[in-house]
């Protein structure tokens, strides 16, 4: 599997990362090298093996349904690059 110019552009867009045209070709080569290298995994026989999603064997912990965090608006808004009143502001979205 080898990534085309378009593939790299598509991935960059999915990841919302702007890549300059000049950089894109170098990146394409690097990504293809890495992908080619990780593809050696295809040599491993994994028939009948369950994928391992976590090394932790225990059950999922949980919390009770009681409000433990009250009015953190100042905390969560403190680092906002653009803020209007108690809102975060972003460039206008057209649906």
């Amino acid at each position: 599997m080898s990534l085309s110019h378009d593939d790299v552009e598509k991935i960059a867009h999915l990841a919302r990362i702007k890549i300059d045209d000049a950089e894109l070709e170098t990146l394409r080569t690097e990504l293809n090298n890495i992908i080619g290298w990780v593809e050696q995994l295809s040599k491993v026989d994994t028939d009948g093996i369950e994928p391992m999603t976590s090394v932790v064997g225990t059950n999922l912990g949980h919390r009770n349904d009681s409000v433990s965090e009250v009015n953190l608006s100042d905390k969560i808004l403190a680092n906002a690059p653009d803020r209007v009143g108690d809102f975060y502001a972003v460039p206008k979205v057209v649906e």
Partner: peptide
């Protein structure tokens, strides 16, 4: 499946 799931299976084998 070809990459991520495969890697998780190999992970199981390594463990």
């Amino acid at each position: 499946d070809a990459y991520y799931v495969k890697a998780q299976k190999v992970r199981a084998l390594i463990a």
